[in-house]
């Protein structure tokens, strides 16, 4: 599913003329198999979020290559990556990233609109998806009228609506209480089991990391170990 070869990334910080280079990722190589749940763990500032952003195409790598579904996405233009993301990737963010002026229904419907799905088909698909995440009765609620757990479920519904083969989650339980966290993790496992969706989850929480089939640890921008967490 994902193949990363000798990936390095650095940021240039500071004013012009007084810039310093910060190496965030150093020579990372890893792969994620189809249907796997992979947890990427590490301390704050270890570079795990940067790795996820590189896989997502939000930033371009300084060196190395990333292949997703056998396509060298690291060479994609912004336009190409946007199209690729729409068709193949779903996102779950720590802070949900819902559009506040849109209802739950409209937020979930958004990827379908971007893909150009007809209004009639959109309506059915969105309602089905909201039902799947148990929010069909909250469809007309704005994000500010929903709890954290409900917002995250809207965010998951939006990630799943186009049935992407890969979902990238950045600290998905970071803003949730423990009960809601457990519900969400069970839901992710169910989706993986029943739909074969590949999950890459960034977390610093061992509980969350444990749902992964495999755990990759990053420290100071380098791969520390890759294996099954005990």
């Amino acid at each position: 599913m994902i193949e990363i070869n000798q990936l390095s990334h650095h940021f240039t910080l500071g004013k012009k003329g007084q810039q310093t280079r910060l190496d965030v990722l150093k020579n990372i190589s890893l792969h994620v198999n189809e249907g796997e749940i992979v947890s990427i763990v590490g301390r704050s500032g270890s570079g795990k979020s940067t790795l996820l952003n590189l896989i997502s195409g939000f930033i371009h790598p300084s060196e190395g290559e990333i292949l997703i579904l056998d396509q060298k996405v690291s060479e994609f233009t912004e336009e190409e990556f946007a199209d690729f993301r729409l068709k193949n990737m779903g996102f779950i963010f720590q802070s949900f990233q819902l559009i506040p002026s849109m209802t739950a229904y409209e937020n979930v419907e958004l990827p379908l609109i971007l893909k150009g799905v007809s209004e009639q088909a959109r309506k059915q698909m969105t309602l089905d998806m909201l039902k799947t995440v148990g929010l069909d009765t909250f469809k007309d609620h704005y994000p500010s009228e929903l709890s954290g757990g409900q917002q995250q479920r809207v965010s998951i519904a939006r990630a799943l609506i186009l049935e992407p083969p890969l979902i990238l989650a950045d600290e998905p339980t970071g803003s949730l209480d423990s009960e809601t966290e457990a519900d969400l993790l069970n839901f992710i496992k169910k989706l993986n089991r029943e739909r074969g969706i590949t999950f890459v989850i960034i977390t610093h929480d061992d509980e969350v990391a444990r749902i992964g089939h495999r755990t990759i640890e990053i420290a100071d921008g380098e791969l520390v170990k890759s294996g099954v967490l005990v």
Binding site: F58, E78, A82, R85, F91, Q97, L98, I99, P111, L114
Partner: peptide
């Protein structure tokens, strides 16, 4: 922020 979210979920710069 809304534009950022839209771009993240796959809205192309052209759109």
């Amino acid at each position: 922020p809304d534009i950022g979210i839209m771009k993240a979920i796959g809205a192309s710069p052209k759109v």
